[in-house]
Design a binder for these strands. Structure first.
Length: 932
RNA sequence: GCGGCAUUGGCGUAAUUGGUAGCCGCGCCAGACUUAGGAUCUGGUGAAGAAAUUCGUGUAGGUUCGAGUCCUAUAUGCCGCACCA
């Protein structure tokens, strides 16, 4: 009988679904394990063959863990809110909810065919009120919390209020606090809340009609759509992520993530140790604060620079310089972020003011220049041209003095930026190493009070408002211009219907079009905004939350997704603890993976989750690129536009330079050979296409060879491969195996359907072996092949080296091809279950026809116990034509004696069969290699 | 500029983690069965050489009895950050 994969796969998918095989319970005596995939955006294009890569890997691991006897939580859901879903809805002119529902349904259908072991009962969608209720809830909790710097954790804002009432703060006394109006008090508190409303310089994207977080902007363009982004000051909600900078940094040392992604996050957090110092303005009471990591170079400060946006600018500019400064500021304003990046010429203007160097007491000019960023440090710097290349360029341009501070440093051509050498021209620091000078200077600064030691972070607070429709509404209403949070028991605050959900270029949020969008305080419900004149009714916040809001705590919701009392119940959270294994792309390194860690730490501070870090181990699967195919249209003399030259001929003189490569749909190309009939039917313009075939012939049944290239997988390149097509043609098990077989999980690689036949052939051969099961005793050779396989596959799965397991299966298959013994085939079915679950179930049932069990009732540890121990102890490892095992020898043994001992050892006997080996290699480590 | 990762046959890759390269698959070659085959099966396939053998993991050094693997330079490619003081 043939390997009828579609029958087998449908049968088992139906079985699993009917028997709730993958239903996960929160109560179990088994050890728990939580395997999570980064949930997808249900985009309109559907899944392509690259998307399931990580899902297959996580499914293999989940199934393996189940076979190991774990209670495995392996859920799937959808990140349904946010820009792409909305952009798609706008493009197709439909309501985002409708398109989202359709897209989610298509994703589920596609995923279901691949045979994942998800518990669909735990599905979450970020756009469901049952879900975003908890996003709103968390936001409210953040509003009601502040970050206690001393205890390094979030605390209820009520504690802060209490402290203000009893002790005041460094800004006001307790009496002053009590005399403030409510609005004044609220304004003060806003500076402390973890979710806060403030005038912030934001990335405004007119085309998208919304502001964007820093990680959503790259090189001055929006990551989504690539539209220009400009800097603007707007009143926005932000999350005080920066308060958690140090903990986000330290936490990285305790989690099992790849070095590259940890490094990316360290970079993004950008901790730098240095000092803040006060510089006085000459002939005035003004002073300003700068941040530096090189306080050892204060003796070489020859000027100061302020960022154009700095508040200090207004204070220090002299009347004579005002016009020049105004002109410069005006010019700076016209420059977009992109211009600044592209054009790094030195620009700036003298403010007219002079500062006093606190150590040399010299008067030094204060400049304004856009090479100093307002958003970092204090927006003001001390310039040390001799030892900072940017200051150097500036000094050269404006002819400012350059004082070298390090012995032997030649600063006539360029600055000396390295933090090494012996100090000079630096008063009491002379003769010290730079490192020691920094330490000594810090002590001096603290003692004299001219500044203080300070750690700075590059990490900014996350801007949390979006002027868009398709997102979580803020649970916020405004009273007297100040925001208040809607009570938790009134959540969810549902997204209203609006007549027009498109964004505007001016920034008025689409929720302004909603009729019902005001808060009736005493009645605690949403009412028509037409009633706003009534004193008890207040306008609601019109912005929505950004895409990362819903994805920041979704992993907690899976633990307990039907709970209507809490985001996650105590018992569920205590049981599952945290995500043990998280799989997803590294593109989320500075977005989702920072926000989720922040969000989790906040909930941890509130005592609502058990673990400070959400994701214990993270694996980043590589991207699957596309492999495009080309046909070559003849465009030389007498071309009709309908003649296509086979790829192997295009370099020949008569065609060279006279062909135009055209992307051809990869689905009508097999092993780089064009399906002629399908090509003619593909597009009307190719109906009458004619060909010069690979052998030079122009008629008959010749082969047409296509060219190829590795490109991004996209519709326009005609290289998108749909998993549905692969499943239909080869089956889900083949797809799963082949995706793993392509190469190491973490590496990027192109999708090339060409190799899939080899994997499919393996499954078919394996299937044939199960046609006649017998109960004969296995031979020693057969057992050895099986044991080798058990050992290899177990090791591979533990190390996420799925690509190397498949060759191991193939080798075992070829070694055992004549074997149909139950004692061999049944364990192989179990080993194969994580990779090719449908075929494995079928095979398992052939071995156990009477049993009604699924394969998950067969436990892997037992398998290992039964076979693995034997395999490693009794038998050596055979690999790549070598036999290797460990033996003890006396220290003074001669080479001949050792070789003799090796050859007569019982371990060698099964391999030698009485013949002499090619070579015996004995290594001091007592490892023996026999080359057969 | 700073940081991370990679570089092995015609191609994707493997090497039990420092043990004497190229497993497995694709492709290619030959054979078998076929009216036919984008089917199936069998054998071969790093390079040079008639052969024994020799050379081979981007390049150049080093450590080691032994290096694809570790160290130091260097080149190329991919990714992240970037006027961050």
């Amino acid at each position: 009988m043939d390997y009828n994969f579609s029958e087998i796969e449908q049968k088992w998918q139906a079985y699993w679904s009917n028997h709730n095989t993958y239903k996960v319970d929160n109560h179990s005596t088994k050890p728990h394990f939580y395997v999570l995939d980064m949930f997808p955006y249900p985009s309109g294009a559907g899944l392509h063959v690259g998307h399931p890569l990580g899902y297959i890997a996580s499914d293999i691991y989940s199934r393996y863990k189940r076979l190991q006897g774990f209670n495995v939580l392996h859920p799937m859901g959808f990140d349904a809110y946010g820009l792409p879903a909305e952009q798609y809805a706008i493009q197709t002119g439909q309501h985002p909810l409708k398109t989202t529902n359709e897209n989610v349904a298509r994703y589920i259908a596609q995923l279901s065919k691949i045979g994942f072991s998800y518990d669909w009962d735990r599905m979450v969608r970020t756009c469901d009120p049952d879900f975003y209720r908890w996003t709103q809830w968390a936001f409210g909790r953040m509003f009601h919390s502040y970050y206690d710097a001393e205890r390094q954790q979030a605390r209820p804002i009520t504690e802060l209020i209490e402290r203000f009432e009893n002790e005041g703060s460094d800004r006001f006394s307790s009496n002053e606090w009590k005399q403030m109006t409510e609005k004044e008090q609220q304004t003060v508190l806003m500076d402390y809340r973890i979710a806060y409303l403030a005038d912030t310089k934001v990335n405004w994207c007119p085309k998208l009609g919304t502001v964007l977080a820093n990680d959503e902007v790259s090189e001055g363009l929006s990551v989504r759509g690539g539209y220009p982004v400009e800097q603007r000051v707007m009143r926005q909600w932000s999350l005080r992520v920066s308060a958690y900078a140090q903990r986000l940094l330290e936490g990285l040392d305790r989690i099992d993530w790849s070095d590259s992604i940890k490094e990316t996050q360290r970079n993004w957090i950008g901790r730098s140790e240095g000092a803040e110092m006060q510089f006085k303005i000459a002939d005035s009471n003004l002073e300003f604060t700068i941040f530096t990591t090189r306080c050892d170079t204060v003796f070489g400060v020859t000027f100061m620079v302020l960022a154009p946006e700095s508040d200090y600018v207004k204070q220090v500019v002299t009347p004579e310089q005002q016009p020049a400064v105004d002109e410069y500021l005006k010019w700076v304003k016209t420059r977009t972020e992109r211009d600044r990046i592209a054009d790094r010429r030195v620009t700036g203007v003298f403010s007219g003011a002079y500062a006093i160097n606190p150590l040399t007491q010299q008067k030094i000019p204060v400049y304004i220049s856009d090479y100093v960023l307002a958003g970092y440090g204090t927006g003001a710097i001390m310039a040390v041209p001799a030892h900072d290349s940017r200051d150097y360029a500036f000094a050269r341009h404006f002819n400012l003095p350059i004082i070298p501070l390090i012995e032997g440093a030649d600063v006539s051509e360029q600055s000396f930026d390295a933090k090494e050498g012996i100090m000079m021209n630096s008063g009491f620091l002379n003769g010290l190493e730079v490192k020691d000078a920094i330490r000594k200077m810090k002590e001096y600064i603290e003692e004299t009070g001219i500044g203080r030691v300070k750690v700075n972070y590059r990490l900014r607070d996350a801007i949390f408002s979006r002027q868009r429709y398709w997102g979580e509404p803020f649970p916020v209403y405004y009273k007297d211009g100040m925001p208040y949070i809607i009570p938790e028991d009134c959540l969810p605050l549902e997204l209203p219907e609006v007549k027009e959900f498109r964004p505007t270029e001016t920034g008025e949020p689409p929720l302004g079009h909603a009729d019902l969008w005001a808060w009736d305080e005493p009645n605690r419900k949403v009412v028509s905004k037409a009633l706003i004149d009534d004193k008890t009714i207040f306008p609601l916040e019109l912005c929505t939350m950004p895409g990362f809001a819903g994805s920041s705590a979704y992993y907690l919701r899976y633990m307990d997704n039907h709970n209507d009392q809490a985001l996650v119940g105590r018992q569920a959270c205590d049981y599952w603890q945290q995500v043990d294994l998280y799989l997803g792309g590294s593109e989320h390194a500075t977005g989702h993976l920072i926000y989720a860690r922040f969000w989790n730490k906040f909930l941890f501070d509130l005592g609502l989750v058990n673990k400070d870090e959400p994701f214990k181990k993270l694996i980043n699967q590589g991207m699957i690129q596309g492999r495009s195919n080309f046909v070559y249209r003849y465009i030389g003399e007498g071309a009709t536009g309908n003649l296509f030259i086979s790829q192997n001929l295009i370099e020949q003189p008569e065609y060279k330079g006279k062909v135009q490569p055209i992307h051809v749909n990869v689905n009508i190309v097999h092993n780089d050979l064009l399906d002629i009939e399908a090509f003619r039917e593909w597009l009307p313009e190719y109906k009458d296409a004619s060909f010069v075939f690979a052998d030079g012939s122009t008629d008959g049944q010749g082969e047409y060879r296509c060219g190829w290239a590795i490109e991004k997988m996209s519709k326009s390149m005609w290289n998108v491969v749909n998993p549905d097509d692969i499943v239909a043609r080869y089956g889900a098990d083949t797809l799963r195996l082949y995706e793993m077989f392509l190469g190491p999980l973490e590496m990027s690689k192109p999708w090339d359907t060409n190799g899939i036949d080899g994997v499919h052939r393996f499954l078919r051969k394996l299937w044939n072996q199960y046609e006649q099961i017998c109960d004969d005793e296995p031979t020693a050779d057969e057992l050895r092949s099986l044991h080798k396989l058990i050992k290899k596959v177990t090791w591979d799965i533990e190390h996420f080296s799925f690509n190397t397991s498949i060759p191991a299966f193939m080798i075992a298959q070829s070694e055992l091809q004549k074997c149909s013994k139950r004692a061999i085939l049944e364990p192989i079915a179990i080993l194969l279950a994580p990779f090719a679950p449908h075929l494995a179930e079928e095979m398992f049932h052939r071995c156990q026809p009477a049993s009604g069990d699924t394969i998950f009732d067969a436990a892997w540890p037992e398998l290992c116990e039964r076979y693995l121990e034997e395999s490693t102890v009794k038998y050596p490892v055979q690999f790549n034509g070598k036999v290797r095992f460990t033996m003890e020898f006396p220290k003074d043994a001669t080479r001949e004696a050792i070789e003799q001992a090796v050859l007569t050892a019982p371990q060698s006997a099964p391999f030698l069969n009485g013949q002499s080996p090619k070579k015996v290699i004995v290594v001091p480590g007592r490892i023996v290699n026999i080359v057969l």
